[in-house]
Design a protein around this nucleic acid. Structure first.
Lengths: 123, 123
DNA sequence: TTTCTTGCAAATTTTTTGCAACTTA
DNA sequence: TAAGTTGCAAAAAATTTGCAAGAAA
């Protein structure tokens, strides 16, 4: 565990929403962490299942700490505001789907995001 | 409707799984379609809701025709094989979530993909 | 000390842009 | 013809790599 890794962890721990690699690199460069290092750390953390990659259909990936628990996101397509939501029991759904899939041995993960327009942007 | 757009539509219509921009550009370049044109067409089609963008947590986006109906994907994390699945009624879920979200005026779309290991890769 | 990680710089890869020429409706 | 699209080449953005120096266990 290095200083640079702790910086990435700390940044993500304090984030209230998923952060892009670019943004993490930009912020941490102020603390002397190189962008190549940030990309390498994110790749390792993802392999090690410490962080989740979140896709907002934007050609850019976002990351958040896995230990924030099972939840998903609603993102505003205008202003990109992100809200979390929980309490959906679709794990049952995943289970029933996984029982019916003959081609797959197991399901290890899933993504589930909603896209919409937030009230401020609706005007 | 131009020749180039028809090429993109035709390519996606014949695809059995979502295709990346890079792959579309690569294949269509053999027919003289420029990569810049492919990216522009994909952007327009996405705006116009003719295609869907699918994210496989890979730093690369995939696209498929919207008219293939409501379905989602299971992707094998080893060999990247993709299988479709349908018949999950989680639109109810989306509706109930959307009723409870005070910050959002409406939900316009969603993503839902499963990740797993296919039987061939399990060995 | 031994292994793994970092910074730096450069290279790749992916996506976007400007603009003149060309199509489409 | 008028509006919008394309190809080309170049630029910009995003990510990855090689390698010597440095930090961690």
């Amino acid at each position: 565990m290095t200083k640079q890794r702790l910086e990435v962890l700390s940044f993500l721990a304090n984030a209230d929403q998923p952060k892009s690699a670019k943004e993490i690199a930009k912020i941490l460069s102020k603390k002397g962490v190189d962008q190549a290092t940030v990309y390498r750390i994110l790749a390792r953390f993802k392999e090690g299942c410490i962080i989740n990659q979140i896709d907002f259909q934007e050609d850019q990936s976002y990351f958040e700490l896995k230990d924030r628990g099972d939840h998903h996101h609603i993102i505003c397509q205008e202003c990109k505001k992100v809200e979390d939501f929980k309490g959906c029991n679709y794990d049952n759904l995943v289970n029933s789907i996984s029982k019916n899939k003959t081609g797959f041995a197991k399901i290890t993960g899933h993504s589930f995001e909603l896209f919409g327009i937030c009230k401020s942007c609706l005007k």
